[in-house]
Simulated assay, not measured.
Amino acid sequence: MLECSPAVLAGRVRECDRLLPRPGTVPVSGLPTTPWAEFCDPAGPWLPRCVEEWQERGGFRHRRAGLVLVAFRFGWLAACATVPEFHLGAPVPSLRDLRVAITAEGRLSALRPATSQPVTAQQWWQDLAEAFEPLTEALHALGGPPPESHEYWGNPVGSVGTVLWHLQRAGLPGDAIATARELLGATNREHLLDIAPDRDPWPRRTTCCQWWRAGGGYCDECVLWNSASRVSG
């Protein structure tokens, strides 16, 4: 844990707010918020519309892309909301009793965690996994892969490395790679994120978020880093 004064710690957390889509920084004025459990109801109004919004935005022919991208979006927002605090030694926002903000188009815009507390790596993962499981079950009910599929779980796990890589690049203190390894070990899904300290970027996902299918290019840490389509594109 990094030792510093409360004022310095608060300043570091604010810098994370500047770098990432975090709960307190995503504008949600006028947007409806709903409990996470209601969002994850496959028979409700929110999740099916969110899937369709991804399908429409990407122009996808295959419905799997929209389903997996919902998992990607939550995994990214959840990692952005929790990993910086864990890395810096601040109380970590809890994803229990979570509410989410949704745009008029149906996009999952922001997370609204209710509380924050100090946690271990194992507690952090348990909290995130308990929030993620209902989403994987609901996406499966809508026609997606089975709930345990790496196509879902690669998103929150892979996002851990991406968040910490961004913090490291911004010059925030602490050993980002050590934190990534600690959190990755707590997931028991180490095969979903490859960490190579001598590589830039050092984290690399081992699963695909599907966004490349929309013609939007590849993320720096994309699993397709050496694919024929990327090399020729």
Rank of each mutant, 00 (worst) to 15 (best):
L139A: 06
L111D: 10
Q122R: 13
A129R: 02
W124Y: 10
Q126W: 01
L108Q: 13
T136W: 00
A131D: 00
Q117H: 11
A114D: 07
V119N: 08
E130F: 01
T115V: 11
R112I: 05
Q126S: 14
E133D: 10
T120N: 13
S116W: 04
L128M: 06
S109W: 11
E137Y: 02
L135G: 02
A129L: 02
L108D: 15
P118V: 13
A138V: 06
Q123D: 12
W125D: 10
E137L: 08
T115G: 10
Q117S: 14
W124E: 07
D127T: 02
W125Y: 14
V119G: 12
V119T: 13
A141Q: 06
G106T: 09
W124N: 08
A114E: 08
S109C: 15
L111W: 10
L108K: 13
R107F: 15
E133W: 05
L135T: 00
T115K: 08
A131T: 01
A138K: 01
A110G: 13
F132M: 00
H140S: 14
Q126G: 14
A141K: 03
P134K: 02
A138R: 00
A131R: 00
L128Q: 02
L128E: 01
A138Y: 02
E137S: 09
G106L: 10
D127C: 06
R107W: 15
Q117I: 07
A141C: 07
D127Q: 03
A141T: 06
G106Y: 12
L108F: 14
Q126M: 09
Q126F: 03
L111P: 08
T120I: 10
L128H: 03
Q126H: 08
A129V: 04
W124I: 08
L135V: 02
L108S: 14
A110Q: 11
A121H: 13
W125A: 12
A121G: 15
T136V: 03
A129Q: 05
A110V: 09
L128S: 01
P113T: 06
W124P: 11
T120E: 09
S109R: 15
A138F: 04
T115E: 14
L139Q: 03
L139W: 03
A138I: 05
P118Q: 13
P113A: 10
A114K: 06
W125L: 12
L108I: 14
G106W: 12
P134N: 05
Q123S: 12
L139Y: 03
L111E: 09
L108C: 14
W124S: 09
G106S: 12
A129H: 01
R112Q: 10
E133S: 09
S109V: 14
L128G: 03
T136G: 04
T120S: 15
R107S: 15
L111Y: 12
P134I: 04
Q122P: 07
E130A: 08
T136D: 01
R107L: 15
E133K: 06
A129I: 01
S116V: 07
R107M: 15
A131L: 00
A138T: 04
L139E: 02
L139D: 01
E133N: 06
A129P: 02
